[in-house]
């Protein structure tokens, strides 16, 4: 694997990273390198400059702030998997990402900036209603997950911007969650991923947040499913009916490859939404 020639800089801070980005046109940030380096090795990406942010300590780690959890973009999948401070949905999803080697290197920030439609964090963060905090030369801004993911490998990150943290609201009592993933038999990425956060009260669903990914160009909320769940007593039949409503929430092209057709993915997303919701509701 032989990438084309590039220059390498290591940034000691976010501001240094930002100024390096401004100095070098078409530079790429390097975090865990587990999405960027493979495409460089295949020469599908040929950035002339890499800016390694991997050692900026401020960008790594998990902290609780009021009613939410703040996660640094350099936090690895393995750290999230092992954390008791993040919502359970996140540690569950992290454990299904690739293998321990990848989880030890790959970061949540790199994952969402790359925005691979088959990756797991976009779906999970969308269901959790996470906020992505971003710094750029014009200062800082925050974007909700639903607006952050825009398409195939496309986010609302502007040129010369860097993700500085991800804020995730904590669940209250009576809220359960689950991520159900249909693994690609070769890559292990999601053919379909469904994340559900369900609040139950007296056998009734009082709040539902559901997102799906893997089969569409980017992760999306499933408002029809949420509407079909909210206010209902949940049982196998009501959940199945709600899951079927996901068909109406899929926008854009349904992805396919030679092993998994769009038709199969469309059928499977219902099964996996049902599984995620059932597990989240404890049914």
């Amino acid at each position: 694997m032989y990438p084309s020639k590039f220059d390498y800089y290591r940034a000691g801070s976010v501001s240094e990273a930002l100024s390096l980005m401004q100095q070098h046109e078409d530079a790429k940030l390097l975090a865990g390198g587990h999405s960027l380096v493979p495409v460089m090795n295949l020469r599908l990406a040929t950035p002339p400059v890499l800016i390694d942010i991997g050692r900026i300590g401020d960008l790594k780690g998990i902290s609780s702030v009021g009613g939410s959890v703040k996660i640094g973009p350099l936090t690895t999948h393995a750290m999230i998997e092992a954390s008791a401070d993040v919502p359970a949905l996140m540690s569950q999803a992290a454990s299904g990402i690739a293998d321990p080697q990848v989880r030890n290197r790959g970061t949540i920030g790199g994952n969402i900036a790359h925005a691979d439609p088959a990756s797991d964090w976009p779906t999970v963060l969308t269901a959790l209603g996470a906020t992505i905090n971003i710094a750029g030369s014009n200062g800082e801004r925050s974007v909700g997950a639903t607006d952050f993911f825009q398409g195939l490998f496309e986010t609302s990150l502007e040129e010369n911007e860097i993700i500085t943290s991800i804020s995730v609201p904590s669940h209250g009592e009576g809220t359960g969650s689950s991520y159900a993933k249909l693994f690609h038999p070769a890559s292990g990425y999601a053919i379909v991923g469904a994340a559900a956060v369900i609040t139950m009260s007296g056998g009734q669903c009082t709040g539902a947040s559901v997102a799906v990914g893997g089969l569409t160009e980017c992760a999306t909320k499933a408002p029809s499913v949420e509407a079909a769940l909210t206010g209902k007593a949940l049982n196998e039949a009501t959940i199945a009916a709600a899951a079927d409503a996901v068909a109406g929430d899929l926008t854009g092209d349904i992805l396919s490859d030679f092993q998994t057709s769009a038709a199969y993915r469309k059928a499977m997303v219902k099964v996996y939404v049902k599984r995620a919701v059932s597990a989240a509701a404890g049914i």
């Binding site: 690609h184 038999p185 070769a186 890559s187 490859d257 030679f258 092993q259």
Partner: peptide, 22 residues
């Protein structure tokens, strides 16, 4: 799982570990 699939123009569809299911 495994299938060294080609398209009808002789392009190997399962040309990487991302596509060829070991």
């Amino acid at each position: 799982w495994e299938h060294g699939a080609y398209d009808d123009q002789g392009q190997l569809l399962a040309g990487s570990m991302m596509d060829y299911a070991m």
